[in-house]
Design a protein around this nucleic acid. Structure first.
Lengths: 205, 205
DNA sequence: GATGTGACCAATGTACAATATAGTCACTTA
DNA sequence: TAAGTGACTATATTGTACATTGGTCACATC
């Protein structure tokens, strides 16, 4: 364990470097315009004016670049969800807002940046770290709201908190995971309200 | 409405006919052995000893044959679920069994008859009638158990029953729909117990 | 040592002709 | 009239020669 100082997979090359930012910027633009698959590493190299080989000094694969872009997208969603949750102070309302915000933010990504959404789908399908981190974020947020609600006496305390958290996560899962969300479009209108209602009823003391 | 005596899409040719059964038998065998896509209509014709054209006297398309086979599979699952539900008499336990049975039966179809499962996936993806009917079956069963539980006083009665039913259906949806189930494998062990627990807590009076 | 590259390879993707398939229809036979 | 078919077409699907692409490496320059 003494070696695990940094992130699980240390980034290749200098972490803070102008060229790294240029690559990310170029990738964001190209991926969202032409899509992940149709963008070649050479395209990125050409737009920043370096050779393809140089890119591999900073990223160990094209997928690593994709993960970076994907992480940024997912972190935007996370920021929005976090904001929605902290905009209110009662835990039940926090849960409602959380569910609503995550569906809305994900759908917006889908409809506004479809090409980037496709990366998110790859990310979920192939279980990239960016996707796993996103799931973990939601899990943690659920747990926090749950703790708060138990402390304030608004949520029941008999069921083991891990069990409750895991169950709520499973309820939200089809709307969190981009791959599944695509197949849940028929329900995205009613699902947040219906399911929040059900979850909150299950939490009543 | 006076014309809607039979099913929405009347079957082509004589309904009760020996050759029709032969086609279904041959299709069941071929589809489960080689898969829906890799079976040609000529293959079916050859095994029953007629010409391909004759098959189209009984089914209006290859997909119609697929729907027939798929319906049979899904009806098997439905029978198993219905049996599991009626094996116990308290509505809460009925719900638990129902969830468990539907996941188990669907997984068994997946692992034992993977090729047939692929038809179920097509069915769900392209929203064939067989898939819609399957969903409707589950919806109805949920509603029935819900009514029973409300009558016996074991379930709460404040929430509109349609809302409760719709919410529970949404919770189960990722495990009912073959297309979604495939992406929920990671959770099929814990999901039935965890989610039944949550749902039942939400139903407590 | 940091910055940067052209040449190279295996694997994946593409274009397009050749083939196979779903589905129809006019027709035969009993 | 019911049972049954060969020949036909338009659309998929496949095979295959060819081009791209992801990724590496030895090497050059500052």
């Amino acid at each position: 364990m003494s070696t695990a100082i940094t992130s699980p997979v240390p980034p290749r090359g200098p972490v803070d470097h102008d060229v790294r930012d240029q690559i990310v910027a170029a990738a964001t633009k190209h991926f969202s315009q032409y899509g992940y698959e149709k963008t070649t590493v050479s395209d990125l190299a050409k737009t920043i004016g370096f050779s393809k080989a140089y890119i591999y000094k900073f990223f160990e694969s094209k997928q690593a670049i994709g993960e970076m872009i994907c992480s940024n997208c997912l972190r935007e969603i996370e920021a929005e969800v976090a904001a929605a949750v902290s905009a209110v102070d009662r835990p039940p309302e926090k849960l409602r807002r959380m569910f609503k915000a995550i569906v809305e933010a994900s759908l917006r990504l889908f409809f506004r940046d479809r090409k980037l959404y496709e990366i998110a789908i790859s990310s979920a399908t192939e279980r990239w770290r960016s996707a796993i981190a996103h799931e973990e974020f939601v899990r943690q947020l659920i747990l926090e709201v749950l703790k708060q609600g138990r402390d304030s006496g608004e949520f029941e305390r008999k069921t083991p908190i891990d069990e409750t958290a895991a169950a709520i996560y499973l309820v939200m899962h089809p709307y969190i995971n981009p791959l599944l969300l695509r197949h849940s479009f028929d329900h995205t209108d009613e699902a947040p309200a219906l399911l929040s209602g059900l979850v909150l009823r299950s939490l009543s003391p």
